[in-house]
Measured scan of single mutants.
Amino acid sequence: FHVTIHVGDITFHIHGVSEEEVKKLEELVRRGADWREIKKTIEEIEK
């Protein structure tokens, strides 16, 4: 999957994300995680 996440003024683009990881990111966004937490999760996914 290709994912784009907008957190305030920050936009993250992630490529090659599995469905499971998409759900993890959706959950973070849904519970209102700040951009640092989302960035950390994205960095883990990209490894």
Rank of each mutant, 00 (worst) to 15 (best):
L28Q: 04
E44W: 05
I5K: 00
L28V: 06
T11W: 11
E27G: 06
I14Y: 05
W35V: 07
V22I: 13
E43M: 08
V7M: 13
I10E: 10
I14S: 02
I42M: 05
H13R: 08
A33L: 03
G16C: 11
L25K: 00
I45Y: 08
I5E: 00
K23G: 07
W35T: 03
W35F: 07
V22P: 00
G16P: 04
R30F: 11
L28W: 02
E21H: 15
F12I: 10
I42H: 00
F12V: 09
V7E: 02
S18A: 07
G32K: 04
S18Q: 07
E27A: 09
K23I: 09
K39Y: 12
A33I: 03
T41P: 00
T41C: 13
E27F: 04
I42Y: 02
E43C: 06
F12M: 08
I14P: 00
L28I: 05
F1H: 12
G32M: 03
H6G: 04
E20A: 14
H13K: 09
I10M: 14
T41M: 15
V22E: 03
T4Y: 07
S18M: 08
E46C: 12
V7A: 08
K23V: 09
K47D: 06
I5N: 00
I38W: 04
K23C: 06
V22S: 07
V17I: 15
W35R: 01
I10T: 08
W35E: 08
V3E: 01
F1G: 09
H6C: 10
R30H: 12
K24Q: 11
T11A: 07
T11E: 07
G8Q: 09
E21Y: 14
D34Y: 02
E46I: 15
I10F: 14
S18Y: 04
F12C: 03
A33Q: 02
E21G: 14
E44K: 04
E21V: 15
E46H: 12
E19M: 12
G8T: 03
D34P: 09
I45F: 12
V3L: 13
H2V: 14
E26P: 00
K23P: 01
F12W: 12
K23A: 12
D34V: 02
K40F: 07
A33G: 04
G32S: 03
H6E: 09
V22G: 04
G32C: 08
K47P: 04
E37T: 06
K23E: 10
D34L: 03
I10G: 04
R30C: 05
L25Q: 00
E43F: 04
T11D: 05
T41D: 01
R31Q: 14
K40M: 09
I5P: 00
V7L: 12
V22Y: 15
R36M: 14
G16H: 13
E21I: 15
T41A: 15
V29G: 02
D9Y: 09
K24S: 06
